[in-house]
């Protein structure tokens, strides 16, 4: 484990702008938190299976049948921009 985190780069991966001030503050705080979690290195985890969640269920299936759900008006009710019953997105392909 390494406590070296590149906050600017990681924020970019998360699609999150951060200011110079935030970057400096987060760098110090997250380094401290990552230093704290270093203690997990002490634990012998050889042969231990990981736990993703605690429900005793896997692969829940249902019939693929159409059901009543949102109308277009409901689906668009909270859209910051819309036109012609569609969400307006920022151009993806140049």
């Amino acid at each position: 484990m390494s406590a070296e985190i590149d906050v600017r780069y990681t924020a970019q991966l998360a699609r999150l702008n951060i200011s110079e001030a935030e970057a400096a503050k987060f760098q110090a705080q997250l380094s401290q938190i990552l230093g704290y979690v270093e203690k997990l290195k002490e634990v012998d985890v050889s042969g231990v299976e990981p736990t993703a969640h605690t429900s005793a269920v896997h692969n829940v299936f249902r019939q693929d049948e159409p059901r009543d759900w949102f109308t277009p008006e409901q689906a668009l009710a909270n859209a910051p921009r819309q036109a012609n019953q569609l969400f307006v997105v920022t151009k993806v392909i140049e």
Binding site: M1, A11, L13, A14, I18, V37, K41, V43, E49
Partner: peptide
């Protein structure tokens, strides 16, 4: 979000996230 992205990012997943899931089992 930044911390969570970091522990899942390439090169750190096994050291942080996978190890944490194993300790969760314990």
């Amino acid at each position: 979000i930044i911390l969570g992205t970091y522990v899942l990012s390439s090169g750190y997943y096994d050291a942080y996230y996978l190890r944490a899931q194993k300790v969760r089992t314990l």
